[in-house]
Design a protein around this nucleic acid. Structure first.
Lengths: 224, 224
DNA sequence: CCATGTGAAGGTATTCACAGCC
DNA sequence: GGCTGTGAATACCTTCACATGG
């Protein structure tokens, strides 16, 4: 099934598989079956095989998948096979945490620039990155930075995105709790932390006496 | 269409609508049409009407929806109509940011306890919450805390979840980059920040000369 | 008239079951 | 024997078009 559009849900799961593989290889394994990977990352084995089938033959029948080869393939598909330099805008509590976050490196993502409007913060170095005045965002294009993380208050989000788009940024991870728009050439993923937590009570079994409206478990991504 | 199972995708969108409504009411509006709300939050108007149709008649034909009434209804459906007390486990960079995060209050979520293994941190007060020794997690059930946020390193995630489950916690938002399991009575949402960012390059238009494999825009939730 | 609410149609993703291959 | 890869069946969600009601 070589020539088939890749379902968005599959694209959403690929990083999950990749994460599992990176841990697996640390544990010294060389090969892994769809069954074993499925258990490890928390999906069904046929889901994994189906997802991989959109790209070509990754595995060996009777054996499984070569962990290293599979990880490399997934990185290529997700375009994580080149190091991507990213800028952070907004070095508040959340922004600082993101600067210190060790998890990005595994996906080839590297925060190399940070911006904040607070004069107190400008010039300070956090986790090896010097905080710059926002006016410097104009020059982002010439610094080989194609990705940005937006961690500014809601009121500043849209104007920040506008500036980033103008500077040639092509992908944005937005933590501000609102919709932001940009030219089609700029892809935006919005991640509202509070909103994720807000989904939780709905799926929680009733506390005390009232009954829960749902019958069974939830197939919703991210919820178990 | 009163008696119909609520699609998970609808449950995922309800917090988006609620967020939009909360901003709208701040702007002094009283009523809003599906069309206007759709534009504001970034979905289609018929999607909104369809979503609401699973619950009953919220709106008035020819007029639209009462913002306040609609927000109250959505909160009731999501079970956000009571204040929920939450515990935070892991007061590192990310945990500290979450403690300071102002966005939870709007959904009735209140972090009232924090735990960390670091003796340096225990006893200190961050954002009005005193950091406690993890042994205190046992008593969570008796403190009217039903929700927990896990922001510990991957290696500590599963044991943390185990302890929380034992203490009677019924909902967990897990920031550790791994699968965690718990008894069925405990609902878990895992949110891996790096993984979200890892999806971005795939959707970004090609940089330089190579061609992008995708044809058009993405219907994937969170991606625009 | 205007905007909601909803059957019906269409599309997409999940799940199954098994053929194919090592 | 064991595990992959995939067509077919099923379930789910989105999209449309319009009847319905203030």
């Amino acid at each position: 099934m070589r020539y088939h559009r890749i379902p968005d849900e599959t694209v959403r799961r690929l990083p999950i598989y990749l994460r599992g593989l990176m841990v697996s290889v640390d544990q010294g394994h060389e090969h892994i079956s769809s069954q074993a990977l499925a258990e490890f990352v928390g999906v069904q084995s046929w889901q994994i095989r189906k997802d991989f089938s959109y790209f070509g033959d990754f595995g060996t029948r009777g054996v499984g998948y070569s962990i290293e080869k599979l990880a490399r393939e997934i990185k290529k598909i997700l375009r994580l096979d080149v190091i991507r330099r990213a800028a952070l805008v907004g070095v508040g509590d959340l922004g600082s945490a993101l600067l210190a976050y060790p998890g990005f490196g595994g996906y080839g993502l590297d925060i190399v620039a940070a911006f904040d409007t607070d004069p107190e913060k400008i010039g300070r170095v956090v986790n090896g990155v010097r905080i710059e005045d926002p006016s410097g965002m104009d020059g982002l294009g010439g610094r080989d930075i194609s990705l940005a993380i937006v961690a500014v208050p809601r009121a500043a989000a849209q104007s920040t995105v506008d500036k980033l788009a103008e500077a040639g940024i092509r992908g944005i991870l937005n933590f501000a709790p609102c919709k932001v728009i940009a030219p089609r050439r700029v892809k935006i993923i919005t991640l509202d932390i509070a909103m994720e937590l807000a989904r939780l009570p709905y799926y929680m079994p009733a506390g005390g006496s009232s009954e829960h409206p749902m019958t069974g478990g939830s197939p919703q991504p991210g919820v178990s």
